[in-house]
């Protein structure tokens, strides 16, 4: 087990390097810092001096890979590649193009993100599983047909409409919750609507997926064995089908658990939650490349942790799996 985890962690290194190189290529080679500066400064009438100053303030005035002017290790370290990419590997995110510390921002903003994403995640899974079980229980009836038709419809609605609709009905028309915003002192009031919207938006896809898993499981031999033992249908469902069906379900959702930190771009920006999602979105709109780069890297790290957790979760829920 320990060797397995170590091996997986070692395997993560080339992937992180790959992510790093890719983002570096995207941000510094496809487009030069000069171009970024020009876009940031906005007007076409900027002078060379403006650009140089902009670059110098943000540390983009160094060479990409090799600084022939510096001495010793400096030839390698006083470069954009080292400053902006290698340091990411040590989780030194540096400063945003606006000059704020990105690490500090992340630490501050992850809590509102988690306040929304964790309840959405947990409630969402529970609701999807319950609906899926209900559908499996009534399989081959008109209830199933109706439920699945409803799921396709829910699935065909863009998540944006759920946000708009939720905000419109719950907040504006019925005034049950505030339309948007966030107060750390009483988060639940502001979190309620985003969570509801997030859960409803996921029901269509989630239920369909879990239903497929459960139906596949329901056709297996051991279910027939349980019935042949005289186990009542409900018990079959909960004692035999659910534990087995949960294996693929759990392991498929574990991968996104670490990414819950990142929040949701859409929900946070629409509901004015000051989390990492809206942070990223603001950075995108303000074309703050330093933040976008950091978030890309952070996202990859979290995903890789998620992959590792997935493998470990297999051993926890499935007695057949041993890591090696």
């Amino acid at each position: 087990m320990a060797t397995y985890i170590i091996r997986r962690l070692l395997y993560a290194i080339p992937i992180l390097i790959g992510v790093n190189l890719l983002t570096f290529a995207l941000f510094f080679m496809v487009n030069t810092p000069d171009q970024m500066a020009r876009v940031q400064l906005g007007e076409k009438h900027v002078t060379e001096a403006d650009i140089e100053q902009w670059k110098a303030e943000r540390g983009y005035d160094q060479p990409l890979f090799i600084n022939s002017e510096a001495e010793g290790m400096g030839t390698l370290t006083q470069t954009i590649f080292f400053e902006k990419s290698i340091k990411l590997l040590a989780f030194e995110f540096g400063k945003s193009d606006e000059g704020r510390s990105i690490s500090a921002d992340i630490k501050e903003r992850m809590w509102p993100s988690l306040a929304v994403s964790i309840p959405t995640f947990i409630v969402g899974i529970l609701v999807n599983i319950c609906v899926a079980l209900l559908v499996v229980m009534f399989r081959a009836t008109s209830f199933e047909v109706a439920a699945m038709a409803l799921c396709v419809m829910l699935l065909s609605i863009s998540p944006v409409f759920y946000v708009i609709g939720g905000q419109f009905f719950f907040a504006k028309l019925w005034a049950l919750v505030p339309i948007s915003g966030y107060l750390p002192e009483e988060p639940w009031r502001f979190v309620l609507l985003p969570v509801i919207v997030g859960v409803i938006a996921g029901i269509g896809a989630g239920t369909r997926l879990y239903r497929t898993v459960f139906i596949e499981e329901a056709n297996k031999d051991y279910i027939r064995t349980a019935r042949a033992k005289g186990v009542p249908e409900l018990t079959v469902l909960f004692r035999h089908l659910l534990p087995n069906g949960m294996i693929p379900v759990l392991t498929s959702v574990v991968v996104i658990i670490p990414s819950l930190f990142m929040g949701s771009l859409l929900v946070e920006s629409f509901f004015g939650i000051p989390g990492l999602g809206s942070y990223t979105l603001d950075a995108i709109n303000a074309q703050d490349f330093a933040i976008v780069r950091s978030m890309v890297f952070l996202g990859s790290v979290l995903y890789i942790i998620g992959l590792l957790l997935t493998d470990i979760s297999y051993t926890l829920v499935d007695p057949r799996v041993k890591l090696s």
Binding site: N31, I284, Q287, V296
Partner: peptide, 22 residues
Amino acid sequence: TTLSSIPSILLIAASVLLVDVY
């Protein structure tokens, strides 16, 4: 694995930004 480890919405956003710059 490398490609899918990058949050796709960020990768898309970043790439689109770069196209804008171009």
